[in-house]
């Protein structure tokens, strides 16, 4: 029973094991970044970035076909241009970062759609842009795992200034010149993880596995360390359940994974001990005794 439901799909089919490994890589790499995005009140930045990446990947596809390298590079370049551009505008002009980011990603998106349309091919590009976790080949898996490792490494390097920037950006800026560097490095990480996620889940789903587990984890943990651990665990659980649902109930795998994360988020919203709806409405004292 347990074998059939939970283990047989992975034992019998290599593509399920690959899918799971891909999801674990994305979970490990992207969720810590998602946690920091949330703490810095930049959750929507992730969404904007995913739109900025889409045209880059599309151009990569149009230039050299269905090539992992070209699409990754295209996505990275487009994402970085938008991230750096908006950061630059925010730091050196009066426009704030949210507005400049919105402006740049919209320009990038429009440019991408324009290029795709004028190419006029009958090949359905959306097909290509919605990666599927079921079709991860060796190269994609290597890419996902290296991006995740690199992301964790870089995050460890900028961990202290990043936490400081979350807590008190003004303070960091006043005592250190690392503030801008930290900010840009962090944006790179966002872009990198979104590009990796887009190979596994498709451009639009990638941002889901970054943000939803972080938001759900917020209701279970207080400290940043535990928050990251909880988010990664939730992402892993969502990936596993989503894949199994996709296997047993014939659901598309990407949306299934994100929806499981959504269900966990909704449950956390109500039952989470850290500021969940029920915890908030109950008298404080009962928790303290």
């Amino acid at each position: 029973m347990i074998w059939d439901l939970f283990l047989a799909p992975f034992a019998d089919f290599g593509f399920m094991r690959r899918a799971l490994l891909g999801c674990v890589a994305v979970a490990v790499g992207a969720t810590p970044v998602g946690v920091f995005l949330m703490l810095r009140r930049m959750s929507l930045t992730g969404d904007a970035m995913s739109h900025a990446i889409l045209p880059g990947a599309a151009i990569g596809y149009l230039v050299s076909g269905l090539s992992l390298g070209a699409m990754t590079l295209g996505g990275l370049i487009a994402g970085m241009v938008v991230a750096l551009g908006s950061g630059f505008v925010a730091r050196f002009t009066t426009l704030r970062e949210d507005a400049s980011l919105a402006a740049l990603y919209l320009i990038s998106l429009a440019l991408g759609v324009l290029i795709v349309s004028t190419r006029g091919s009958n090949v359905d590009l959306m097909h290509v842009l919605f990666g599927t976790v079921l079709a991860l080949d060796d190269a994609s898996l290597v890419l996902l795992c290296s991006f995740a490792s690199l992301s964790l490494l870089v995050l460890a390097l900028i961990y202290r200034p990043l936490v400081l920037e979350c807590a008190d950006p003004q303070f960091l800026r006043s005592v250190s010149k690392l503030s801008a560097a930290t900010h840009f490095t962090f944006l790179m990480l966002v872009v990198m993880n979104l590009v990796a996620g887009f190979h596994a889940l498709g451009t639009l789903m990638a941002v889901g596995i970054m943000i939803l587990p972080a938001a759900a984890a917020r209701f279970w943990a207080g400290g940043i360390g535990t928050l990251i651990a909880a988010a990664a665990a939730i992402a892993f659980l969502s990936s596993l359940s989503g894949l199994l649902l996709s296997f047993h109930y014939s659901l598309p795998s990407g949306p299934a994974i994100i929806l499981v994360a959504g269900v966990i988020y909704t449950l956390s919203l109500f039952f989470g001990p850290e500021g969940g709806v029920i915890a908030q409405t109950l008298p404080r004292r009962r928790f303290e005794t």
Binding site: P9, F13, F15, T132, L134, Y249
Partner: peptide, 18 residues
Amino acid sequence: QGLSTESEASAADVAKLI
């Protein structure tokens, strides 16, 4: 078997084909 060109594949479809 089961794979559509129109929509995203599910794990069940891929398993069926294999």
